[in-house]
């Protein structure tokens, strides 16, 4: 029993790892395609049909390029930076339920690596840890642009974490649970949390953009001012690790947003579909729905990137501290009042 359990979990981890890597790799391709389409171009189309082999080509390029460690850099921390960024970006996906329990070979397998009862806080902790990769890498580069990027990254992440946490608290008032599994089960068929928490979702979305360092909040890397910010000195695969970490972060935060606000693997009329397809194929439909939603969110990330210009630094801080935090607090108060009134009625 113990061994079977271990094997099941290891298999799940490996599958999830591969899926995450694939999605991250193809996000780089999709990003370039989406950018091209929005600018009336065609994008990568030479490597394979529709340029589908482009991620492989890019990966090969990253692998075989010369690695340069600047002589003034702190060697160990210089290597630790991108490794840490990649590591922390992977950690988040462990608690996300990708589907209902599925029946495989006469066994019920939950499609979630682990369900810890403080799952949302865990995600929060992992996100807050993610900034270390940027900070350590930026500092170890021994370059003022990198240092500026690192410092911007740190202050931005800390500022937006507060608003993010407050927006989640309002959600928790509605759902009464910190476990992702229960959260997903509560949003059965069409009872998605977005209906109860539209403002909270908006705040969370903006903060997710800031936490993943995506445009319009990409001030830590900011090509025009900081020539790449924290990855100025990075080359070859370490640069690739940072880039990959960004795309994995995007995938994980999309998955978190889908699970928190958009019903996770739930979709309308899922009971009828499940009854029709049985306990093996029914949950698989849910899994594909989940991934469809995630891909839509990743597309949304890209769509915003190629539309909205970057914030100025003081605007970023103003938005975080003077707009989002008061809004989130107001959201908590309103939610609390509504819940109390509804309970009394």
């Amino acid at each position: 029993m113990e061994a079977a359990f271990l094997i099941e979990k290891i298999l799940l981890v490996v599958v999830l790892f591969v899926i995450t890597l694939t999605i991250a790799a193809y996000s780089t391709w999709a990003e370039r395609k989406v950018a091209a389409w929005m600018q009336d171009r065609v994008g990568p189309n030479r490597a394979g049909i529709f340029g589908l082999l482009q991620p492989l080509a890019d990966g090969g390029k990253m692998f075989f390029k010369e690695e340069i460690i600047p002589s003034g850099a702190n060697k160990w921390l210089f290597i630790a930076g991108p490794s840490l960024a990649l590591l922390t970006s992977f950690l988040g996906s462990a608690v996300i339920p990708f589907g209902q329990s599925i029946e495989l070979f006469g066994k019920t397998v939950p499609l979630q690596v682990t369900d810890i009862n403080v799952g949302i806080l865990y995600i929060f902790g992992v996100v807050s840890l993610g900034v270390y990769g940027i900070m350590i890498g930026g500092w170890a580069s021994n370059n003022k642009y990198s240092l500026m990027g690192a410092i911007r990254g740190a202050s931005q992440n800390i500022s937006y974490e507060i608003a993010m946490g407050l927006s989640i608290i309002a959600l928790l008032l509605v759902t009464n649970t910190l476990s992702f599994k229960e959260l997903a089960e509560q949003q059965h068929s069409w009872h998605w949390n977005i209906i109860y928490q539209p403002l909270g979702f908006l705040i969370f979305l903006v903060c997710a953009f800031a936490e993943t360092n995506r445009v319009p909040f990409d001030l830590p890397e900011c090509e025009t001012e900081l020539i790449g910010g924290y990855n100025t000195e990075y080359s070859a695969f370490k640069m690739g690790a940072y880039m990959f970490a960004e795309y994995i972060n995007m995938f994980v935060s999309s998955a978190v947003m889908v699970t928190l606000y958009f019903g996770g693997y739930n979709y309308p009329f899922m009971d009828q579909v499940n009854a029709l397809l049985g306990p093996t194929w029914g949950p698989l439909v849910g899994v594909s729905v989940m991934f469809l939603k995630i891909i839509l969110f990743i597309f949304f990330f890209m769509w915003v990137r190629w539309t909205v210009p970057r914030f100025r630094y003081d605007q970023l801080m103003d938005l975080g501290w003077k707009v989002l935090i008061p809004l989130a607090i107001a959201n908590i108060v309103i939610t609390a009042i509504v819940i109390t009134v509804v309970d009394k009625l």
């Binding site: 009336d40 171009r41 065609v42």
Partner: peptide
């Protein structure tokens, strides 16, 4: 303003490519 901008970029996805 952001939504208007996003609508514009979305419409551009279906325009004829200049390449």
């Amino acid at each position: 303003a952001i939504f208007r901008g996003m609508a514009i970029t979305f419409m551009h996805m279906f325009k004829k490519k200049e390449t």
